[in-house]
């Protein structure tokens, strides 16, 4: 990677991806040469049940401009139930984050299965567009 010295701001987006679905979808998107923005960083976790809301909070705290949590469609969880538990948590957490003033576009959730490489690319485009429109995130940012 070369270091580019332009002053243009690019969003920093963390995608927390389930190993069995979304990570495979990212792989498939690569295989099929679907282009998606390079502003995203993928973190692989074993299941959407592993996606602690703390990951999202910590990402914003450490300088992320947007976070996407993504796992298998309901019913398709590799471990059976992980994404159902995650869904309840995310529903509550998203509303709580909006309540404390975070823009809903910054914290997104989606279901992307292992066969949906194109949906993965589309979602990333949409996500980067949304976050770029909002500009850099200052909320919840670590002051140190």
């Amino acid at each position: 990677m070369s270091v580019e010295n332009n002053n243009e701001w690019n969003p920093k987006i963390i995608v927390i991806a389930c190993n069995w679905c979304t990570y495979a979808a990212a792989d498939l998107a690569g295989l099929n040469h679907y282009e998606y923005p390079a502003d995203i960083r993928i973190i692989r976790v074993p299941c959407s049940g592993r996606m602690d809301p703390l990951f999202m909070l910590r990402a914003f705290n450490r300088g992320a401009d947007g976070v996407l949590l993504s796992g298998c469609h309901p019913g398709d969880c590799h471990y059976g139930t992980g994404n159902y538990y995650n869904r309840r948590r995310q529903m509550m957490m998203k509303r709580l984050m909006q309540f404390v003033g975070l823009e809903p576009e910054r914290y997104q959730t989606s279901w992307i299965s292992g066969a949906e490489g194109s949906k993965f690319a589309e979602t990333m485009h949409k996500l980067v567009e949304d976050v770029t429109a909002l500009g850099p995130n200052r909320k919840l940012r670590d002051e140190r």
Partner: peptide, 15 residues
């Protein structure tokens, strides 16, 4: 308690 269980029909209007 509600976060230790789930229903298949839970809402997911965040998509």
């Amino acid at each position: 308690p509600p976060f230790s269980m789930y229903e298949e029909s839970d809402p997911d209007d965040f998509l």
